[in-house]
Amino acid sequence: MDLLVKLGNIDRRVIYILLILATLVPLVRPIGLPFSVSEATKKFYAAVEQVPAGETILMAIDYSVGGGPDIHPQGQAVFRHAMARGLKVVFVAFVTEGTEFANQIIAEGEKMAGKTYGVDFVNLGYVPGSEVAISAFAQDVLKVYPKDVRGNVTADLPIMQGIATVADFVLVTEFATGIPGPSEWIKQVGTRYNVPLAIGVVTVMGPQTTPYYQAGQLVGLLSGLKSAAEYEVAMKAPGLATAAMDAQSIDHIVIVLFIILGNIAYFAGKGKKGR
């Protein structure tokens, strides 16, 4: 009984070391646990799949470095999908770091055969103002972004021909770690313009974003690294997100075990007191 009670007081450093091992071992020796693609991810994938080749979509990269690894693979996967389908992608950001993340995605695009900056993709960069900026951008793209991040005049770029308002994109996608996020985009774009909106969020935001998806305000929803892995599987092109899923599983098991041990210790201790 005493041993059980002691389980409730494991040194925190033991927990830390076990967590590190639980992450490292499956990364070094992958198990390759299979997983299915969720409904919300399938819908997001289908939304990109339905855009006719040659049309332009918007990718708003509104994530910061803190949550980056949880959501950046989503951005990369959607961009690869768009490129494979022959779509054009315009990147914008309403969180400062989004500019750099978009540059990192574009760096990959520039290595793809037959894809050119300014023709197949462009990074318009960041503007401050959060919700106000999204609203202003939606109304007049060129006024808010007279130049792209490389100093080109936006109106002169081939990819920007025919783009005046946000309604000129065939699909709007946004990836968020916080504010601005789904709430602001649904308010300023989703309900005001006749354009489908699909959103990716960090895992933490998944539960609070689901009501929008369930209410039909979003055509697709990605939630964290797991959804990125699902997207990679849907594209039949597994990447780093898929490789992370074994470690994700083992880590969850370890944390659940700790919680269960803690509870066993609690009830064991309570039983002891009761006697």
């Binding site: 925190r12 927990i15 803190g66 609690y266």
Partner: peptide, 21 residues
């Protein structure tokens, strides 16, 4: 930035083990 936010998982795990009853 990433490492700072990743630290949280250790605290969540240890707090859950101690207090999640």
């Amino acid at each position: 930035g990433t490492a700072m936010f990743a630290l949280m998982v250790f605290f969540i795990a240890s707090a859950a083990q101690r207090a999640f009853r």
